[in-house]
Lab assay of single mutants.
Amino acid sequence: NITNLCPFDEVFNATRFASVYAWNRKRISNCVADYSVLYNLAPFFTFKCYGVSPTKLNDLCFTNVYADSFVIRGDEVRQIAPGQTGNIADYNYKLPDDFTGCVIAWNSNKLDSKVSGNYNYLYRLFRKSNLKPFERDISTEIYQAGNKPCNGVAGFNCYFPLRSYSFRPTYGVGHQPYRVVVLSFELLHAPATVCGPKKST
Rank of each mutant, 00 (worst) to 15 (best):
N1T: 12
N4F: 08
N4G: 13
L5W: 12
C6H: 06
D9E: 13
E10F: 07
R16M: 13
V20Y: 02
Y21R: 02
Y21N: 05
Y21W: 08
A22Q: 10
R25K: 03
K26V: 15
I28G: 06
I28L: 14
N30Q: 09
A33E: 05
A33K: 07
S36I: 06
L38E: 04
L38Y: 06
N40R: 14
N40T: 14
L41F: 15
A42C: 07
A42D: 07
F45G: 15
F45N: 15
G51P: 05
S53P: 11
S53L: 10
P54M: 15
N58Q: 13
C61D: 07
C61W: 08
Y66I: 14
A67P: 01
D68S: 04
V71A: 05
D75P: 03
D75M: 09
D75I: 05
V77L: 13
R78D: 08
Q79K: 07
G83E: 09
N87D: 06
I88D: 00
A89C: 06
A89L: 03
D90H: 07
D90P: 02
Y91T: 04
Y93V: 02
D97F: 10
D98Q: 10
F99V: 04
V103L: 04
V103H: 00
S108K: 01
K110M: 08
D112P: 01
K114G: 06
V115K: 14
Y123G: 06
K128Y: 10
S129G: 14
L131A: 03
F134Y: 15
D137F: 03
I142H: 05
I142Q: 05
I142W: 05
Y143L: 05
Q144M: 08
A145T: 05
N147V: 07
P149F: 08
N157M: 02
Y159M: 01
L162G: 00
S164T: 09
R168F: 02
Y171D: 00
V173H: 12
H175Y: 15
Q176Y: 01
P177H: 01
Y178M: 09
R179Q: 00
V182H: 01
F185E: 05
E186M: 08
L187R: 14
L188D: 15
A190D: 13
V194H: 12
C195P: 08
S200Q: 14
S200R: 14
T201K: 14
